[in-house]
């Protein structure tokens, strides 16, 4: 550093030189801070999303780098939320990247004392078999008065309020076709 540069580096002069008269901006930024870049600035892309918690439906900007979510912030464009998120919406990056997240299928056999691993394909096959078996066993064609029922009371389902409309739609469509009517979600709870 030259003498001149050192001289201009004096705090009061630095304030004057940068126009930061109150000394709360550029003038007091250290080199270390200056060299730091926000994760949002280095992201490869920003994806428009919606907070998955409550029904206010705050807009989110999801920042992605190298195929990973690096940050989630409020979307200033949203007329509903105007860029704000509450603690839940702000924490949703951890929902994606949480180390405790379970990312493989687990299976507990009847009477077993612990989980065992299972492939996704195999699990889905087994579930399809269970559905068909239970449906066969518990099918009700007509009631005692001979009126149509065409259903199974052997299968129940709970969930949907955290799911997408498209997901609820496929669920309802499939359940109805298989005759499962005990389909419910949090709206009841």
């Amino acid at each position: 550093m030259t003498d001149r540069a050192a001289f201009l580096g004096w705090p009061a002069l630095r304030q004057l030189a940068t126009g930061d008269y109150l000394g709360r901006g550029q003038a007091v930024v250290s080199k270390k801070t200056r060299d730091k870049l926000a994760r949002t600035a280095t992201a490869d892309k920003v994806v428009k999303s919606v907070c998955p918690y409550c029904a206010v439906g705050c807009g989110q900007n999801i920042f992605v780098k190298d195929g990973k979510v690096v940050q989630i912030e409020g979307d200033p464009d949203s007329p509903v939320s105007r860029g704000r998120l509450c603690p839940k919406g702000s924490a949703s990056e951890q929902l994606v990247n949480s180390p405790t997240r379970q990312t493989t299928v687990l299976y507990r056999a009847p009477y077993a004392t612990d989980w065992s691993p299972l492939g996704l394909e195999e699990a889905t096959d087994m579930i399809a078999d269970r559905v068909i078996e239970t449906r066969r066993r518990t099918w009700q064609d007509k009631d005692e008065n001979g009126q149509f029922l065409r259903r199974t009371m052997g299968i129940a389902s709970l969930g949907g309020a955290a799911l997408d409309n498209e997901e609820n739609y496929l669920m309802k469509k499939l359940y109805t076709a298989m005759g499962a009517i005990q389909v419910e979600n949090q709206a009841r709870i």
């Binding site: 299968i155 709970l158 799911l163």
Partner: peptide, 11 residues
């Protein structure tokens, strides 16, 4: 014992 199978989706 009438309900044999149960799906839980995000609940």
């Amino acid at each position: 014992g009438t309900v044999e199978g149960y799906f839980l989706l995000g609940q």
